[in-house]
Design a protein around this nucleic acid. Sequence first.
DNA 1: GTGAAAGCGCTAACAG
DNA 2: CTGTTAGCGCTTTCAC
Lengths: 331, 331
Amino acid sequence: MNIKDIAKKCNLSVATISRVINNDPKVADSTRKKVLSVIDKYKFVPNITGRSLRTQKSNKILVLLPTMSNQFYSEIIQGIEETAEEKGYAILVAVTNLQEHQEIKYLHMLRMKHVDGCISLFNTIDAESISSLAKTYPFVQCCEPTMGADVSSVEINNRQAVYDVVNQFIQKGHKTIGMISGDYYKTSELGRETGYKEALRDNGLVFEKSLLVKNFYRYEDGAIGAKKIMAHNPKPTAIVCASDSLALGATSYLKSEGYTVGKDICVMGFDNTAITTYTSPTISSIGQPRYDLGKESFKLLYEKLENINSTNKKIILPYEIIHRESTGCSK
Amino acid sequence: MNIKDIAKKCNLSVATISRVINNDPKVADSTRKKVLSVIDKYKFVPNITGRSLRTQKSNKILVLLPTMSNQFYSEIIQGIEETAEEKGYAILVAVTNLQEHQEIKYLHMLRMKHVDGCISLFNTIDAESISSLAKTYPFVQCCEPTMGADVSSVEINNRQAVYDVVNQFIQKGHKTIGMISGDYYKTSELGRETGYKEALRDNGLVFEKSLLVKNFYRYEDGAIGAKKIMAHNPKPTAIVCASDSLALGATSYLKSEGYTVGKDICVMGFDNTAITTYTSPTISSIGQPRYDLGKESFKLLYEKLENINSTNKKIILPYEIIHRESTGCSK
DNA sequence: GTGAAAGCGCTAACAG
DNA sequence: CTGTTAGCGCTTTCAC
């Protein structure tokens, strides 16, 4: 059942059917009624591939995710989705699992015009490729802009967030502070680690390599990281983590070793995911405005969708530091 | 830059270019070489919309998710993705957020031939619509088959899983057992609740309405549920939950009320997500073979992709009951 | 207000 | 081995 069939049933041309489908005002009311009833009767749905081929647009955008196993992304996607829907765009999510060939495969959907634009939550390909991609296709990076790439992006000031936290710790009297970070989200990690180092430096403390451990973002990496950091002499009294999962893993390890987290040692998480209030101790965290991160990303993408030559923008959104039980202690 | 342009640059027909693109063996080696070098030079990428329109297939499948904020789905999707890739299919994920209009919107992608098939992790539309959809398009349900629908599906035996757990509790001497369930995944919930009721009945215990609370699957719903259940007289000594988030929320509430979970009261989760081993107490849980759930779903879908008239299959995969600290107690 | 016809980019049947 | 041709389903001039 295609447009031609409907045209036959109606004794009209395909052009008229097309006009009805697309709400063209210059079609007689009686004609429109007849066509709609036939469309309804046969449950006709216009073939979007034919339409895409003709109009050269799909009204779909791609959201590229590094992994699905991160609570953090869900609200960002909701922000994108709800903003996109207002403008008539559906969103499609693809997961790269951090594999470059997957990333390339899905980015081809842009070049192949199967989607009109892409919001990427993470990229492995180099800055130059990103820049050239963004020049030709509507493309926006969210949370993890590739360093040195000329592209629109939305993120928080990761450096400043950790700087503030470490600074607070030092004000409260902490002298030995560790950090557990990850090892693949290059941009945010560098920012967070830089904030850590700069806060130490600005307070006259020296950065020690053995107090900064980097690995993945699984709970167990938090535990492993905490173990390494606690082997340091003197023992740290505070640990900043690059995610809540790391903070939770660290807390779990510290408790098993007899420390009272929030009293003997402070632990700070990142992203303020729902879990933080349901553990004991509850986990302090740095919150990102997830919904708005998604929303602003789509708005930037929409500017590119309307005019690919519009200038690239870099948007920085505010973060918040939320103190819970895990940072109850001063030293 | 399209196939026609390439043909001109090569002084060949578009047909030959198409043959090269599609690895047709009956193309002279010298010709192939020339074409490939031109393709490379101009960075030509075949337009997949044109191809889809012509071949009537997209080599893409849709994975329909009720929500993104559930750790549980990530490994299922990986199972689907890796199996699909072997067969040359890319996967696209869409999130309905439990809204019917979203579900319908994305299912249209099937009818519009924008994807060749769909694996759905949850549906709100009725059994008849599902059956008729599955008759015409490759469609498989994973984890939550719609009751009464004629469709291929993969799941575990939810009823038996909870039956076993409750039975174990009773064998260990528990006499008052509560259950915290959810209120929208109709199929699995009904199965789990039925298992709970049947185990009670088969052991001569009576089911009491106030011991079964239903709500959403957020941590707070676990806390709220536990509060309600603990108001019962006599006090329950074990609670079965329909998810790990509920179990964690319940545990958090019980601890705040002074109970020692695993000693005063047992708590069982569901899905065996990573968090269960990083809380204290660690949470016992019923594990589903997530990767295989995804893998088998794609295999069923592939049978439909090859032959839409192949008979529908219902696959039941094994579960496992994993005891951790939260179920340490007998009564 | 409606229809005829061209064409989006591609593949495949057929001819040679 | 290569070219010619038709057509996938749709939108959009251009006529009338």
